[in-house]
Structure formats: structure tokens, C-alpha cells
């Protein structure tokens, strides 16, 4: 058994833990089980955990995890097409099966609130402020790969909080609809069926909800992330307009007049080559700032400009009169330059 354990520091499941009680005297002491072991944390959490089954979409199975947030049948889970089927089933910790209705969804944060017509044996309190910080141990309880069936306890995985972050500012901004606060964990949760699981602090408080499977566009690896409890609190307690206002402000931005900097990049190298300046338009903001041919643009407003394509995509979004910070490379130096896009002059 022991040689397999290199990987298993971070992952173990409740069934195994019961065996461990017998094998490991440290854990078996009754006072520790009651007052301060992970086993107690996990045991206490199980009655509030549910398995959610919905419609399969193509190869993607309609399976998720969820957890109770009230006595009267409110269940949080992850938003997904599997909730659009004819029927959503929720299986409680005792194995009983209930039909759930979808009360509300948040497509920005990929959350859904379900309701079943039954009393729940146990539920989690949602704190309105984040309760974890980087380095904290967390236990993710999620039904990855549908390992647990019916009344079987859901698998628990141990990890730490890797990073607290914001999705729209930092992560996968181009590929994925998720926006808002999140935290990354180093337990592996990005697997089918795990989304909607509970992320608990070591002492059993609800820290977040296991996110869906997504790939980082920065690294193209899977992210193991969770939506923090304060976001869940806002979602459950009716802060529904947040996402709508966000969308509205974006619409507004699109109506603004787009300006120009007067930079023409070298196009012959293809869209993947760096954004070398080919020509600076006379009298343009870039010309007044002293930019020259052969400068390389590496960043606009903090967004990385890795290629001609990035430059072209970004330049289309800069409104007239709104200052932008441009960083370019000249020789071996990097120069920061503030520029104000000017109105496009029409050709004569």
C-alpha cells in the first residue's frame, strides 16, 4: 500500500479514512475525532452534500455536485446545459432522490440555485466575506467521475489555496464567460462531475464552490478553481443585477467612437509576429510622442501585445480621448508612453 502514497497526500476519501481510523492510532483517539480532525470535518459535511443529475449534452454527462444552503431545500450547484433538460434530479446523502426546480442562474459566475421540496438534514452557512487566504488548507468535496453513487459519501480531496484572483482581469479572459472573484486550489478538482462541489476550510466552514472544467488561455492547462463564499452569498441572497449592469456598461463602451494612435505595424511577417512599428502617421498622437519605425509594441493598457493580431484586436477598442498606456521596446530598452487616441481623419 505504502509505495502508492506519493500522490495521495492530497487526496483520500472517506471510505479510506474509516480504515485509517483503525490503522492510525493518532486519529482514532476519540477526542481528536470530535474536536479537530479532517475526518470530523468531512463527516460533518457529507449530510449537506448532494449529487445532481441532469440532461447529457453530447459526450458531456449531465452530472454535477451540489450542497445545501438552507434547511428548506435550497441547493447550490454549478450552472450548465445539463440543467436545461426535462428533469433535474438531486440525490441526497441518504440516497433519496428528489426532483429539483432551477430557481435562478448566474451565467457570469456559472452558478445555479436549485430547490427541492424536502427538508435537508444539514446545510452550510454562507459567509459574506472571503474566509480563506493563500496557503490555507482546504478540503474539496466533489463527485468527480461520478465515483460515488446513491448514498455513497462523496470523495474528499486535500489541497491548499494557491492564489486569490479575479477571472476577468487575469484569467482566460478570451475564452470563457466566467467573471469575478475566484480562488485557485492545488487539489485536482477540474474533472467531470466535480463542479458544484464544496470547498471547506480544514475546520469545516464553507469557503467556496468548485468551479467548472476550464482551460487557462495563458497556459492551456486546466484550472482548479473555486467561487468564494462571499460571491455565493450575494448570489443566493438576491444580488441578481450585478451581472446585468456589467453587461450594460460593456454595451455602452462599444458605442463610443473609436480613435486612432497613428501606428501602422509591419504586416509582412504575418499575424503571429511581434508588433513592429512599420510607419507612424504624420501628426498623429504616436508621432507627437516620438515613436518611430522599428519600435516594438509590447503592451497596451496592461494587456500584453504578443503579436500583430493582438495589436490589431486591441487598437479597435480604444475610444477617442481616453488615455492609454503603451509600452514599447526600442533597442534594449522599454519605454512607457501615454497616448490619447485622436478622432480618425477621413480620407480626402
Amino acid at each position: 500500500m505504502i509505495p502508492f502514497n506519493f500522490r495521495l497526500i492530497k487526496i483520500f476519501c472517506v471510505l479510506g479514512m474509516l480504515v485509517a481510523c483503525l490503522a492510525t492510532p493518532v486519529v482514532a483517539q476519540p477526542n481528536q475525532v470530535a474536536t479537530g480532525s479532517l475526518q470530523a470535518t468531512i463527516d460533518r459535511a457529507q449530510p449537506a452534500m448532494v449529487k445532481v443529475f441532469g440532461a447529457a449534452a453530447g459526450k458531456v454527462e449531465g452530472v454535477a455536485t451540489g450542497f445545501a444552503v438552507s434547511k428548506d431545500g435550497l441547493i447550490l450547484t454549478s450552472q450548465g446545459v445539463f440543467l436545461d433538460g426535462k428533469r433535474v434530479r438531486v440525490v441526497l446523502a441518504d440516497g433519496s432522490e428528489h426532483t429539483a426546480s432551477v430557481l435562478k442562474r448566474d451565467r457570469q459566475r456559472q452558478l445555479a440555485l436549485l430547490k427541492i421540496e424536502a427538508e435537508l438534514p444539514s446545510w452550510f452557512e454562507l459567509a459574506d466575506k472571503p474566509i480563506t487566504q493563500q496557503g490555507d488548507w482546504v478540503v474539496a468535496i466533489c463527485n468527480a467521475f461520478k465515483v460515488a453513487d446513491k448514498a455513497e459519501p462523496i470523495s474528499a480531496t486535500l489541497g491548499i489555496v494557491s492564489l486569490q484572483s479575479e477571472m476577468d482581469a487575469k484569467l482566460t479572459k478570451r475564452d470563457y464567460a466566467f467573471r469575478g472573484e475566484l480562488f485557485l486550489i492545488d487539489a485536482i478538482t477540474s474533472n467531470p462531475g466535480a463542479a458544484g462541489g464544496a470547498v471547506l476550510t480544514a475546520d469545516g466552514r464553507l469557503a467556496g464552490l468548485v468551479g467548472k472544467i476550464i482551460n487557462s488561455s495563458e497556459t492551456n492547462t486546466r484550472l482548479n478553481y473555486a467561487v468564494p463564499c462571499n460571491v455565493l452569498h450575494a448570489f443566493v441572497n438576491g444580488d441578481e443585477n450585478a451581472s446585468n449592469t456589467l453587461a450594460a456598461s460593456e454595451l455602452l463602451a462599444e458605442k463610443k467612437e473609436i480613435g486612432e494612435l497613428g501606428i501602422q505595424v509591419f504586416l509582412m511577417g504575418g499575424r503571429k509576429s511581434p508588433a513592429y512599428v512599420d510607419r507612424i502617421k504624420r501628426g498623429s498622437p504616436a508621432a507627437e510622442a516620438g515613436m518611430k519605425a522599428d519600435d516594438v509594441i509590447v503592451s497596451i493598457n496592461g494587456e500584453k501585445i504578443a503579436s500583430v493580431k493582438d495589436f490589431q484586436d486591441t487598437i479597435k477598442t480604444l475610444p477617442v480621448g481616453e488615455e492609454v498606456l503603451l509600452i514599447y521596446k526600442r533597442g534594449n530598452g522599454l519605454i512607457r508612453q501615454k497616448l490619447v487616441p485622436a478622432a480618425k481623419r477621413k480620407r480626402k
Binding site: M1, I2, F4, N5, R7, L8, I9, I11, F12, C13, L15, G16, M17, L18, V19, A20, A23, T24, P25, V26, V27, S37, L38, Q39, A144, F145, V147, S155, L158, I188, N191, R222
Partner: peptide
């Protein structure tokens, strides 16, 4: 990747040894 994770979960049943391990 999925195969890996899958294995990990299958193997998880023997992983409970860790509690004592952390203490040590």
C-alpha cells in the same frame, strides 16, 4: 490527463494513511 486523475481517484482508497503521516 484524465486517465491520470482517474487513477488518482481509484488509488485514493488506499490514501488514508496520510493522516498519521502529516502528524509525523
Amino acid at each position: 490527463m484524465i486517465t491520470f486523475l482517474n487513477n488518482k481517484i481509484n488509488a485514493a482508497l488506499v490514501g488514508s494513511w496520510m493522516i498519521g503521516w502529516l502528524w509525523l
